[in-house]
């Protein structure tokens, strides 16, 4: 597109429109960092709480979840830095951001009032995280994330149905296959398509 006033015919106009719109596809930003960050944070939280409960005399094992605060700071710093580097933002990027803001607001409310839930917030968090992961998978058309969301939902059903002795094993499995595996797959996919 060297000259500024090239003569156009309608066919050529249509071609330009199609070509440019096509170029904006695939502009969705790599969000694997967030899945990996939160996957590891939640996994550490769950496994840490189990270990503290079973192997120590600590009366407040749920305090392990305070690791969320440094994770939030890391999330914000990464988000701001990444945002500054980006020179294009799609409507789907905004939609994806809104999905996770909705998750964060819901999550914060549950966390603040977790005493009201007798500290049994894992199924609620999983339902929220599963919904957000599923929706992100739909928005960016990435099947492993869609399946990751379904893993969260199945995990919650298992939490309610299986014997209490096995419940402790469910949550780490859900995080690994709901967040971490799709997160690493997304990272690999984004690298290949960079």
């Amino acid at each position: 597109m060297e000259t500024n006033e090239k003569v156009l015919n309608p066919e050529k106009s249509l071609q330009i429109i199609e070509k440019m719109i096509q170029r904006t596809k695939g502009n969705l930003h790599d969000s694997s960092f967030y899945f990996l960050l939160w996957g590891w944070v939640v996994l550490i939280g769950i496994v840490g709480q189990i270990i503290i409960e079973r192997f120590t005399d600590c009366t407040k094992p749920y305090l392990i979840w305070l690791i969320i605060f440094p994770a939030v700071i890391a999330n914000i710093i990464y988000g701001v830095r990444h945002g500054k580097k980006t020179c294009v933002s799609t409507h789907l990027d905004s939609l994806n951001l809104m999905i996770w803001i909705a998750f964060l607001v819901s999550y914060s409310i549950v966390l603040i009032f977790m005493k009201k839930f007798d500290y049994n917030i894992v199924p609620i968090i999983f339902l929220l995280a599963g919904s957000a992961t599923f929706l992100t998978g739909i928005v960016i058309k990435f099947k492993p994330l869609i399946l990751g969301g379904i893993v969260f939902w199945l995990g919650v059903i298992c939490l309610f149905l299986i014997p209490a002795n096995y419940v402790a094993f469910i949550s780490p499995i859900v995080i690994i296959f709901g967040y971490l595996v799709p997160g690493y797959m997304l990272k690999s996919y984004s690298k290949r398509n960079a």
Partner: peptide, 25 residues
């Protein structure tokens, strides 16, 4: 006009775009 139509086609598909992005595309 070829270039103006290209700019508009890009901008209608995204929320916002930097000058560098428009130049590349």
């Amino acid at each position: 006009s070829e270039l103006r139509l290209a700019i508009m086609s890009l901008l209608i598909s995204v929320e916002k775009a930097g000058f560098t992005y428009l130049k590349e595309q």
